Simulated scan of single mutants.
Amino acid sequence: MDGFVLSRPDHSVLTRGVRRSFDDAGAATHALSEGSATLIVGALPFDPSGATALYEPAEVTVTGSAWRSDTSVDLPHTHAVREIPSPADHLRRVEKLVTRLRDGDLGKVVSARTVELRAESPISPTALAARMATLNPAANTFAVDLSAAGTDFVGHSLVGATPEVLVSRRGNVVTCRPLAGSARRTAETEADRVAGDSLLSSTKNLAEHAFVTDWIRDVLGPLCSELSIPSTPELTSTHEVWHLASPIRGILRDPTTALELAIALHPTPALCGTPTTAALNVIRDTEEPRRFYGGAVGWCNNVGDGDWVVAIRCAEISADGRTAWASAGGGIVADSDPQDELDETTTKLRTLLTALGVSDTN
């Protein structure tokens, strides 16, 4: 795709063309600070040691509303061809993690799995993003070319509709709204209400959420003269999932840019675990590379303002458009139930699979 889309419910940033690209976040932040770039858009990978897909666009359009495509392109018939790892292997992986967590050297590790999809004709990233925006109007829809990250990503795109904002900056005000702790929604009204109420009182999920807010406090605290973090999370939802959320607001001491804040904050314990370095090493040792799933997608302008969202409920699309990889994960703590964790990933995958008309994989 020749462009970038980040559509939030109240505004959108759309670009076309590339003036220059950056596979290194430091080079991109330098271009903004020296004034040689007025806007940087793109994606950060899950693993901070990986190459970025950031670029200075040639054309920019900013709107004061959610984006809706003005063209209609049908999406092809698509089906699942492989699960990486298999459901049985994912269960065994989670069981091993729970044993390790009970030994006490880690607080939480996020375990993810991937579904490989095959399409009968090329998937248009823009058409998929438009479909996801229609199905998930309250989400943050994105589509980004990953070519800047190097040979393995040339022509690939990342497309998704995420409920989670990693960080936003406007002037000296910084806001976050982390999600951690989740429960499956149901079609029956009373059962759905009970599921949400149970999540709000779940010791396991509240502890998982606290890992994330504590991390954000540790990162943003030194950067802010004021930082407001709720003592307890609130309940929020997508069509498929209840989440625990915490609206966080801070006043920056110094003009740290939105891109610099995103680099400092990701990956949060919501996508990685805690302690962060130890959890990241476990993920590197036990999982296939996550590439840009679990990273961040966003924009930052030359005054430092910007939005970065967490790259979940998404898929990477191959250069020929005929293969896609959709991933989902869940936070594993000492009292996690492996089957529940597998079911949680299945539920989270529905946002992407529904957009492509693919039924559940297990």
Rank of each mutant, 00 (worst) to 15 (best):
residue 43 A to M: 08
residue 205 N to K: 05
residue 91 L to M: 10
residue 62 V to I: 13
residue 43 A to Q: 04
residue 28 A to S: 00
residue 286 T to S: 14
residue 332 I to Q: 01
residue 178 P to R: 01
residue 50 G to K: 06
residue 311 A to C: 11
residue 320 D to Y: 02
residue 236 T to G: 10
residue 270 A to D: 07
residue 248 I to V: 09
residue 37 A to L: 10
residue 26 G to V: 11
residue 46 F to D: 04
residue 346 T to N: 10
residue 137 P to C: 11
residue 74 D to N: 03
residue 335 D to L: 03
residue 191 A to V: 00
residue 252 L to F: 10
residue 162 T to P: 04
residue 173 V to M: 08
residue 232 T to R: 14
residue 246 S to K: 07
residue 360 D to S: 15
residue 298 G to K: 00
residue 232 T to A: 15
residue 151 T to P: 15
residue 275 P to Q: 08
residue 244 L to H: 06
residue 303 V to F: 07
residue 265 L to D: 09
residue 31 A to C: 10
residue 178 P to L: 02
residue 175 T to L: 07
residue 238 T to R: 06
residue 199 L to Y: 02
residue 337 D to P: 00
residue 78 T to K: 03
residue 253 R to F: 08
residue 115 V to F: 09
residue 180 A to S: 12
residue 300 C to Q: 08
residue 10 D to I: 07
residue 255 P to E: 13
residue 107 G to L: 02
residue 341 E to L: 12
residue 243 H to K: 10
residue 41 V to M: 04
residue 319 A to I: 08
residue 226 E to W: 05
residue 261 L to W: 07
residue 133 A to C: 13
residue 51 A to Q: 11
residue 286 T to R: 10
residue 353 L to N: 01
residue 249 R to D: 00
residue 121 S to Q: 06
residue 54 L to N: 00
residue 323 T to R: 14
residue 70 D to Q: 09
residue 14 L to S: 04
residue 348 K to L: 04
residue 346 T to Q: 12
residue 225 S to W: 01
residue 62 V to K: 11
residue 349 L to I: 09
residue 240 E to A: 14
residue 43 A to H: 04
residue 72 S to D: 10
residue 189 T to H: 15
residue 157 S to G: 00
residue 278 A to F: 12
residue 9 P to M: 09
residue 327 S to E: 04
residue 140 N to W: 11
residue 108 K to E: 03
residue 21 S to W: 14
residue 31 A to L: 05
residue 171 G to E: 06
residue 131 R to E: 15
residue 354 T to L: 00
residue 341 E to M: 08
residue 93 R to S: 12
residue 76 P to Y: 03
residue 169 R to V: 15
residue 301 N to W: 09
residue 56 E to G: 03
residue 66 A to F: 07
residue 252 L to M: 05
residue 204 K to V: 01
residue 170 R to M: 06
residue 81 V to A: 00
residue 46 F to I: 02
residue 245 A to P: 04
residue 235 L to Y: 00
residue 95 E to K: 13
residue 32 L to M: 06
residue 299 W to N: 14
residue 307 D to P: 09
residue 213 T to W: 08
residue 174 V to G: 08
residue 6 L to T: 06
residue 339 Q to V: 14
residue 304 G to N: 01
residue 157 S to W: 09
residue 332 I to G: 04
residue 109 V to G: 07
residue 152 D to E: 15
residue 210 A to D: 10
residue 325 W to G: 05
residue 154 V to L: 11
residue 208 E to Q: 13
residue 94 V to D: 06
residue 67 W to H: 09
residue 250 G to D: 01
